[in-house]
Write a protein that binds this DNA or RNA. Structure first.
Lengths: 210, 210
DNA sequence: CTGATATATGAAACAGGCTTCAGGTTTGGC
DNA sequence: GCCAAACCTGAAGCCTGTTTCATATATCAG
């Protein structure tokens, strides 16, 4: 039988010191990947920015791609958490959407580099992109379903289609405003977005049941 | 004074034979870039698929990136042409949107690989991505303005914001349906998309002026 | 303080793919 | 048929960046 290749043990750091170092590398990787792009980014650059030696990188990640994947996972998690927190207190579902969009724009603004990372993932690992969007969509869809049950969103809309449509809108506008213009949307643009969502999502008016 | 680096002359082929060869390389590049991603894709693979020798590539392109850029430009042009043609005969502007979306999905389906290329451009040259979307948006915006003038689209929507919102929707849904599911949207999904666009874009009903 | 464990170092080995170039081959006008 | 221009060839050079590893340092419980 073929000898099994022993996977290099990549430490999950067991001491605070190790965890700090790992995080420093990840932070630097976010910067470097975001600024230079996956392929321009070098381990040398990442470790230099992290203030550690080249070899240290390989203590925590089996290779370059692994660090990239970690970053995408972190991005996904943070994004979902932030949006969930932001909309938690909002009653009306259409209003929730609007708050969700705004939160997303803030996120892209604050994690500018991190968000570039996702757009690059297409040429690193397409499955990772899919995973990202499907994960986001999952939560989105169940939220929409719940809102439909309560009559807050038009009942005839297919939730999955709606979810992808909304995610696409958010991303496109986020790219335009936050990554290119580097500023938040004007009042007029905001009004348009709000009107767009209101009309598309809000159920046709009828006399409210008492 | 420093000697000026002479830019290598990259032929615009002057004979039919040369043009064929150049096109063969471009076609192969579309396949290979699309399937493998920019960085996995090698000139060796591209030229092999094109049925030419390695060196031939450098007769027509100064380097790998140049071929990639050419591809993006071609994608952009083809896409705009196809959509323009498809919506040419359609009267109602909201209906035009729907036809435009359908055409886009067809395009993604037929040029599956070519379309992956754009998503990868983020890690090759961000400016190229921006160019692509801004070019598309430009035409979109003027179309929307015209429609607003004719009262076919709600007048209170900012055209630029609307254009980016719609492009984002199209791309997200196109990715989901054409690249992942590899099939055209179900009737239910189509209805949802139509309803979404109708409600968001169509001006509020009022008795039509005679 | 001491040994055991975890972490860190960075020069050098290594790999893989881009690019060059010194010729060969094809084409088409005359 | 002949020749000049255009086109094509592919082995080898080259360069850049990833990954390894033998060695050094830090931490901490006992």
């Amino acid at each position: 039988m073929a000898e099994r290749a022993v996977a290099r043990v990549v430490a999950v750091p067991s001491t605070p010191r190790g965890q700090r170092t790992r995080q420093r590398i990840l932070d630097a990787a976010e910067r470097v990947f975001g600024e230079l792009g996956y392929h321009q980014a070098g381990i040398v650059e990442i470790t230099q920015q992290a203030g550690v030696a080249l070899g240290t990188f390989y203590l925590y990640f089996p290779d370059k791609r692994a660090a990239f994947e970690d970053l995408v996972h972190a991005l996904n998690r943070r994004l979902r958490t932030e949006i969930a927190t932001a909309i938690a207190g909002v009653e009306d579902r259409v209003e929730r959407e609007i708050v969700g969009f705004e939160t997303f724009f803030h996120f892209v603004d604050r994690h500018r580099n991190l968000y570039q990372v996702i757009r690059q993932a297409a040429s690193v690992d397409p499955e990772l992109v899919r995973w990202h969007y499907e994960t986001l969509a999952k939560g989105y869809v169940s939220g929409l379903r719940a809102a439909q049950a309560k009559g807050e969103i038009a009942a005839d809309l297919d939730p999955t289609t709606t979810a992808y449509a909304l995610m696409g809108m958010a991303e496109s506008l986020g790219m335009r405003w936050m990554l290119w213009d580097r500023r938040f949307p004007s009042a007029g643009a905001r009004r348009t977005l709000r009107a767009f969502l209101e009309r598309a999502l809000r159920p046709p008016k009828r006399t409210a049941a008492p």
